[in-house]
Design a protein around this nucleic acid. Sequence first.
DNA 1: GTTCTGACTGCGA
DNA 2: GTCGCAGCCAGAA
Length: 112
Amino acid sequence: MAELSAADRIFAAIRAIPRGQVAGYGEIARRAGLPGRARLVARLLSENSDPRLPWHRVLRSDGRIAMPDGSKGHAEQTRRLRAEGVWVENGRVRGLKAAATVDEQIWGMPPE
DNA sequence: GTTCTGACTGCGA
DNA sequence: GTCGCAGCCAGAA
């Protein structure tokens, strides 16, 4: 089959995140074959409101919510993560060391 | 075709 | 722990 576009690969990487897990923008971008394209991931998410896309599992490299605290999306993301068993405290995700290591937690091994 | 903006990242203070 | 600055890239107008 044909090669997917950057956006398609990014969405695929996000959908690959298992329930109860989270990933960083940089990790998603790298997993999609686009290292350093974290901003592209953020942009795509802001433009696409796909209900089937677990965008709420995408966090910053610090393990925090990307959006400013008090935003509608921020509140909803926190609520969804908690619903999946992910503890979110003051806009920060607990239970994970850092979003930079989720790659091994999710896919079990570094990308090929 | 050019210009602007951005749900980012890393580093230093 | 927080704050600011600069770099990078791609999509949208």
